[in-house]
Design a protein around this nucleic acid. Structure first.
Length: 487
RNA sequence: GGUCCUGUGGCCGAGUGGCUAGGCUCAGCUCUGCAAAAGCUGCUACAGCGGUUCGAAUCCGCUCGGGACCUCCA
């Protein structure tokens, strides 16, 4: 197996990936909170981890990829007060909380399918794992690192810090963290400023509630991931991922919960993907600058000049390394769309390439460079640069400007299958098959008419056909072998 | 306020102490009835000021700008 290097947030270094129990690998990614539509920023994270999942699979790992659905436990507003997000949304839309969950879970999966992400091995829900969460909370209390007050259970961060490094994931000391925290409110019942809720007491109007040793209530946000990752991947597993915004709070607390519960570090490699920005500012629900994937596909948004196909958007995202911020703009999308089309056109060209007896190119070198790029912390920017080398070679060979043997052509096909389709997860946009066939026949007819016009030097007619086809979104090109077209 | 990240050509984006990705755009050329496509060529950049070095966009310091986290967020 190739040696793969992964940037580990825990150590702030690239480290060689050593699976605990190869060829198996465990991957846990914090999934969406399904109380509203996922925006494009959310999608970026899941596309990034889809790439990581795909590459691990490609390298031969048997990956168990767990991505949770948060369908309870998230609180609206500040601190551990306020309504459950689902309950609030449910009131707003006059639906049951579980209707909200269903609606946005289905929407999320649809979008993920559009982006051609592979479904995770397991998609556990928070509400489906209340027992496991309660058990963990009980254990943490037993170990003296959590306490109950009035039906709420809190994690005792300062006490935990005596034995463990609470801020290790963000490289921060407890004192620094305490300084950055707000003053405790007068009514706050927590002992320490940094303490966070493991279990929250239900109010009289709370709909989503479960019985617990501390009375009716619901779990805190962080405990679900600890409980579910442990259940499906074990006490310590290989990779845990999520957006960078989860690093300081959510993931920091996950480590603390696991350590406090069973005294093991839960994760060997922490991976964090960077944010999608709009005009340099992070896209987020609260900032109101979110794009919905649907708006992007249709172009129905004030900042967009046109719609973009899901695969063009996926390609756009993969052109940037996952740990860099990616700025969203019309121009950048258009550039990516064209690049993506060129990449896919070359694949079509490749299918009809004629082999020469000798070769002037070293395709194997490109292939090994592709692996090098991916093995260096999933560097898709560089991978794509190498793939465009292949594109240039394919097009030049098609122009007869250089020679490829059949072995070269076969290797190029492998390169496309491995990296463009399997690893990057790109695919040609395919429409309705019956329509495609019908369109093909119509186009054959049109081009025949135009060809006759050209033979008869009736360029006025031939140009008129071409211009009107372009207006209809169909581009044609005349070559020595005949005329081809594409939508 | 604290902690941290970042500033690359017209745009988007990689990057290693020396060999200066890639995509898009623009201009020219080849091909072509004209286009389109493709190929080739050109536009050759690293915020500013100092320092280390034979040599720095890459290391160090300062200045300026942008951002993230510290509060729900992928």
């Amino acid at each position: 197996m190739q040696s793969l290097f992964i940037y580990n947030t825990l150590t702030r270094k690239k480290e060689e990936f050593k699976a605990i129990n190869p060829p198996f690998a465990g991957l846990y990614v914090c999934g969406p909170t399904v109380y509203s539509d996922v925006h494009l920023g959310n999608c970026r994270t899941f596309i990034s981890f889809d790439l990581i999942y795909r590459y691990l699979l490609h390298l031969g790992y048997k990956v168990r990829y767990v991505r949770n659905i948060t369908d309870a436990g998230h609180l609206e507003g500040d601190r551990d007060e306020g309504d459950d997000k689902f309950a609030k949304k449910a009131k707003l839309e006059q639906l049951e909380p579980m209707e909200i969950v269903q609606k946005y879970t289905v929407g999320f999966r649809d979008i993920m399918r559009e982006f051609n992400t592979l479904p995770p091995s397991i998609e556990p829900t928070a509400t489906g794992h209340i027992c496991e969460q309660i058990e963990m909370v009980k254990e943490i209390i037993k170990n003296g690192l959590a306490y109950e007050i009035n039906g709420n259970v809190y994690f005792d961060v300062e006490k935990y810090s005596k034995g463990f490094n609470y801020g290790q994931l963000t490289n921060r000391k407890l004192e620094e963290l305490l300084e950055g925290t707000r003053e405790l409110g007068g009514q706050d019942e927590k002992r320490g400023r940094l303490d966070f809720a493991l279990w929250i007491k239900a109010k009289s109007e709370t709909i989503m509630r479960w019985p617990s040793p501390w009375g009716w209530g619901f779990p805190g946000w962080h405990i679900e991931c600890s409980a579910m990752s442990r259940k499906y991947l074990g006490d310590t597993f290989d990779i845990h991922g999520g957006g960078m915004d989860l690093q300081a709070t959510h993931h920091t607390n996950e480590i603390a919960q696991s350590q406090a519960c069973y005294h093991k570090t839960p994760v060997n490699y922490w991976m964090h993907t960077n944010m999608l920005t709009v005009n340099g500012v992070r896209m987020s629900k609260s900032a109101g600058n979110g794009f919905l994937p649907g708006e992007l596909f249709t172009g129905n948004h004030p900042l967009l000049e046109k719609g973009y196909a899901p695969m063009a958007v996926r390609f756009f995202m993969l052109q940037t390394h996952y740990r860099s911020t990616l700025d969203f703009s019309n121009e950048a999308l258009q550039a990516s769309e064209k690049g993506f089309e060129r990449l896919m056109e070359a694949y079509k060209t490749l299918q009809s390439l004629k082999a020469s007896a000798n070769s002037s190119e070293n395709i194997a070198a490109i292939q090994s460079k592709c692996y090098e790029a991916m093995n260096d912390d999933f560097n898709t920017s560089i991978l794509i640069a190498h793939l465009f080398d292949a594109v240039r070679i394919i097009n030049s060979a098609n122009d007869g400007k250089l020679n490829l043997t059949q072995a070269d052509i076969d290797l190029l096909k492998i390169l496309y299958n491995d990296f463009v389709f399997d690893v990057l997860g790109l695919k040609a946009e395919s429409g309705n098959e019956r329509l495609d066939t019908a369109l093909q026949k119509v186009m054959d007819l049109m081009l025949e008419i135009r060809s006759k016009a050209k033979t008869g030097k009736d360029f006025k007619l031939s140009d008129e056909i071409r211009d009107k086809l372009i207006a209809a979104g169909i581009q044609i090109k005349d070559t020595k072998e005949g005329t081809t077209w594409k939508v």
